Simulated assay, not measured.
Amino acid sequence: MAARPPLVALKDVRLQDGPRPLFDGVDLAVEPRSRAALVGRNGAGKSTLMKVVMGLIEPDSGDRSVQSSTRFAYVPQEPVITGATLLDYASSGEAEPWTAEAWL
């Protein structure tokens, strides 16, 4: 049986924040039906790397490839909360008000 290509892959990715290098030479491949965890100290760049993987941030160099059927779900660390109340925010998307109340 032939190996399937990875859902998402990074090859020799490099990213800097001004003069400070965040990543240099990152290689990553997430295979179909695999489980992965990203572990590191606070401020190590885990969230930034995930943004590169999802295509929210472009690396300074290197390649990123994603299978066309791949979907990402992302919950930002610091969401922009809009609305007068938390219930307004929770129901501002596609959620019905009763569903938003149950979540809260």
Rank of each mutant, 00 (worst) to 15 (best):
G25W: 08
N42W: 00
K46P: 06
R33C: 15
T85N: 12
S68P: 09
S92T: 00
P21S: 02
T82W: 07
G40Y: 06
T99P: 00
L87A: 03
N42R: 12
S92Q: 00
G40Q: 11
K46V: 06
A73S: 11
I81M: 02
R41W: 04
A37R: 10
D63Y: 03
I81G: 00
L87H: 06
G45C: 15
E58G: 09
A36G: 07
P76E: 07
V8T: 15
K46F: 01
S34Y: 04
P21C: 09
V52G: 03
A36W: 12
D63M: 04
D24A: 10
A73D: 13
M54R: 06
M1P: 09
D63T: 09
S65C: 10
M54G: 13
S34W: 01
G25H: 08
Q77I: 01
F23R: 14
N42C: 05
A95G: 05
T70D: 04
K11F: 03
R35D: 03
L87R: 04
R41K: 15
T48E: 08
Q77G: 04
S47R: 02
A37W: 10
R14P: 10
A9Q: 14
V75E: 02
V75W: 02
K11R: 14
D12R: 07
D63Q: 09
V53K: 11
V80Y: 09
V66D: 02
L104Y: 05
A36S: 05
Y74N: 08
S69L: 10
R35M: 09
Q16G: 14
G43C: 12
R35P: 01
T48V: 08
V52F: 04
V13D: 14
V30W: 12
A29R: 02
V39P: 11
E101W: 01
Q67P: 03
G83Y: 02
W103M: 05
L38I: 12
S91H: 02
F23H: 07
M54D: 09
V53T: 13
P19G: 07
V53E: 06
P79I: 04
D17G: 04
V75H: 05
S92H: 01
L15F: 12
V13F: 12
S68Q: 08
R14V: 13
A29F: 09
L86W: 00
D24M: 10
S91Q: 15
K46H: 07
G55I: 01
L38G: 14
V39K: 13
P76H: 06
G25M: 08
V13Y: 07
P59R: 00
E96S: 03
A36Y: 07
Y89N: 01
K11W: 14
P59F: 02
G83N: 02
L10M: 00
P6S: 11
G43V: 05
G18H: 03
L104F: 06
R35H: 10
V13Q: 12
D63A: 12
D60Q: 05
